[in-house]
Computed example of a mutant assay.
Amino acid sequence: MIYYLVIINIIGYVLFYVDKQKAIRHQWRIPEKTLFLAALLGGSLGCIAGMYRFRHKTKHWYFVYGMPAIFIAQCIIAYYVNIFDH
């Protein structure tokens, strides 16, 4: 499970980097729903890190509040499921 979380967070981080580079070059962009999907699949911390590291999507309220909300919800779920206890 830890390996999965590391990989999905790296993917989330890289998705924000790639989308930022594409935005700079006015190229085809990664859909916002894909960025949120990466967060929902467990990569919320990587997405948040990428969002602020690359200053990408930080003017969109639904990213600024949505990504941390997903992360908090995942932490609460992990606590109650005891995902890190095994």
Rank of each mutant, 00 (worst) to 15 (best):
M51K: 01
I24M: 09
G42P: 01
I72A: 14
Y13G: 04
I7T: 13
K20R: 10
R55K: 15
I70E: 01
A23R: 07
Y80P: 01
A49V: 13
V81I: 09
A38H: 08
A49I: 14
A78V: 07
R53V: 13
W61F: 09
R53D: 11
R29W: 11
V81N: 08
N82W: 11
R29T: 09
A69R: 12
L37R: 09
Y17D: 08
A49D: 05
K57Q: 00
A39F: 03
F36P: 02
Y52D: 08
R53S: 15
I7V: 15
K22T: 06
V6M: 15
G42L: 02
Y62P: 01
I83E: 10
A73M: 05
D19G: 05
I72Q: 12
N82S: 09
I77Q: 07
Y62S: 05
V64K: 11
F36V: 07
N82G: 15
P68Q: 04
V14S: 07
M1C: 11
V6N: 08
R55V: 06
M51G: 00
G66Q: 02
Y62I: 04
I70C: 07
L35V: 11
Q74F: 03
D19T: 08
D85G: 11
A78S: 11
I48G: 02
H56D: 05
P68V: 01
K33H: 14
H26F: 14
H86W: 08
A78Q: 04
P31A: 08
M67I: 10
L41W: 02
H60N: 06
E32Q: 05
F36K: 00
V14G: 10
H86N: 12
T34A: 13
P68W: 09
L15V: 09
S44M: 03
H60I: 11
V81T: 13
F36C: 02
W61V: 09
Q74G: 09
I77V: 12
K33T: 10
H26R: 14
L45A: 08
Y79I: 11
F54N: 00
C47V: 03
I11E: 09
A39I: 00
E32C: 10
Y3L: 15
K22Q: 15
Y17M: 13
W61N: 13
Y3I: 12
Y4L: 03
I24F: 01
L40H: 07
F84D: 06
F54M: 07
V81E: 12
I2F: 12
E32G: 01
L35R: 05
R55I: 09
Y80N: 15
Y3K: 14
Y80F: 15
G66N: 05
A38C: 15
F63K: 00
K57G: 00
I83Q: 08
F54T: 07
T58Q: 10
A49N: 07
L5T: 12
I72H: 12
E32A: 00
F84Q: 04
I70A: 00
I10Y: 11
Y17P: 03
W28F: 14
K22P: 05
W61Q: 08
Q27P: 10
V81R: 08
I30D: 01
Q74W: 07
